[in-house]
Design a binder for these strands. Sequence first.
DNA 1: CGTACCATTGACAGCCCTCAAAGCAGGTGG
DNA 2: CCACCTGCTTTGAGGGCTGTCAATGGTACG
Lengths: 250, 250
Amino acid sequence: MNRLGLGTLGGDHVQKLTAPFLCRLKSLVPLTPREEYFLEALELPAHAFNAGGHVYAEGDGDLPPWIVGAGWACRLRVLPDGRRQIVTFFLPGDTIRLGDVDHPAIQSTILAMTDLTLLNASRLAEAVARADDSIANIVQACRVTFIWSQAQLLDHVLRLGRLTALERMAHLILELHYRMQDAGLAQDGRFPLPLTQSQFGEALGLSLVHVNRTLQQLRREQLIELKPGRIAILDRERLALLCDFRKPAI
Amino acid sequence: MNRLGLGTLGGDHVQKLTAPFLCRLKSLVPLTPREEYFLEALELPAHAFNAGGHVYAEGDGDLPPWIVGAGWACRLRVLPDGRRQIVTFFLPGDTIRLGDVDHPAIQSTILAMTDLTLLNASRLAEAVARADDSIANIVQACRVTFIWSQAQLLDHVLRLGRLTALERMAHLILELHYRMQDAGLAQDGRFPLPLTQSQFGEALGLSLVHVNRTLQQLRREQLIELKPGRIAILDRERLALLCDFRKPAI
DNA sequence: CGTACCATTGACAGCCCTCAAAGCAGGTGG
DNA sequence: CCACCTGCTTTGAGGGCTGTCAATGGTACG
């Protein structure tokens, strides 16, 4: 299909590309020096995808597990008449098909939402599957990561089923904020947000036009500040109150 | 809270209570005689819950994994203002907290939707975790079961995000049909459907009134027949076409 | 300087919700 | 046996949230 740019990048970027993943792990569990060294020594091969390209198309065979190094991806369902529903976002530091299950029965597609660099995590997956004692914390962190991804799916169901457009938007923004923060990519409520309003709509079950009006309302009420590609949360408490957002505890 | 009827039932019912689970396993993988004997020899203890009672309340400690013997349950999220969203249905033969993860972070409640009998599956869970070679097919079936439950979650997201009320209803009815069929509880498109219209609404993100009107439309168009507690699908093909329902393949 | 993509704005329609009231069982007690 | 209650279903009326259609502006890029 529309698969692009599968070339391997030079090794000098790899170090930085693992930073979000490492940061996220450390936000979940403390790592021993040995475990940190283990992760750095893995030298995961990087692959680049262009914005809009398929990481995984329905019907593809087995693919390796990935770690998102840079850029955003999503899991997507498409209807015959063109309606699209984004099911999951994959942010830097997130894992794809690691613990999080994948299988043809899932009937979904994984798409690069921006230019994207993924790290092939096969070697990590093998070590985690063996559950070596020497990386017990990493294994535990992967388990927690999986539980969180489940919680995020339930959050998504709640948003789509029971929240108004304004609430949905606030709730999603807060979720993305905390996830970017755990990956070390948010400072002081500000973080990169490379989504178009159309993509917001595809995630939240709203039309592009209504997404636009909803975002304007959040701005009018001094809750967020939005520049192309970046967002700033101005009043996290009021935003959380608006949509009953609760960050899950470990 | 509203926890009721935790008494243990007599052992003579247990045999029949495992039938839906056994039937579902066999619909996924062939079982060896030895595996069938293994399951029957487990003698899982049964617990009864009254309709409306909590199986698991947010904040409860660890509970055993369950197999649904009879009756329906659901996983539910509740908002402070009373809005409710059903996230997952648990039908006879389904497993709860087995493979399917649970954790306080999931922030949800498990409720008995009807009078309910659950089987404590701790002994099964231990055997599956050990991954004994002698029950390889059962282990495999549990893996597939988990993948299906993930696919059902994605289906639910798609329904809530992108389908109209009529489509949502048709899609859910078909999902429930196939699940009941795999459990050996549907014949010829007819199966017990103990949900109230209000519960339908809580699952599909619709109001009670609109559920009522939507069901009437499905009846008017000769797609389903509905009696209290039972449903019959009159034209499965047309119903599936209406909502792009695709049964996931193994 | 077009072209393409994204954000923005207005008008209008439609799906779905809320409020309200009336049937319709099944169960309970007098 | 009947009255009453409770919970579920059904029906009507009206309103609001959100979608669709259409057009404009802005910005990056070739």
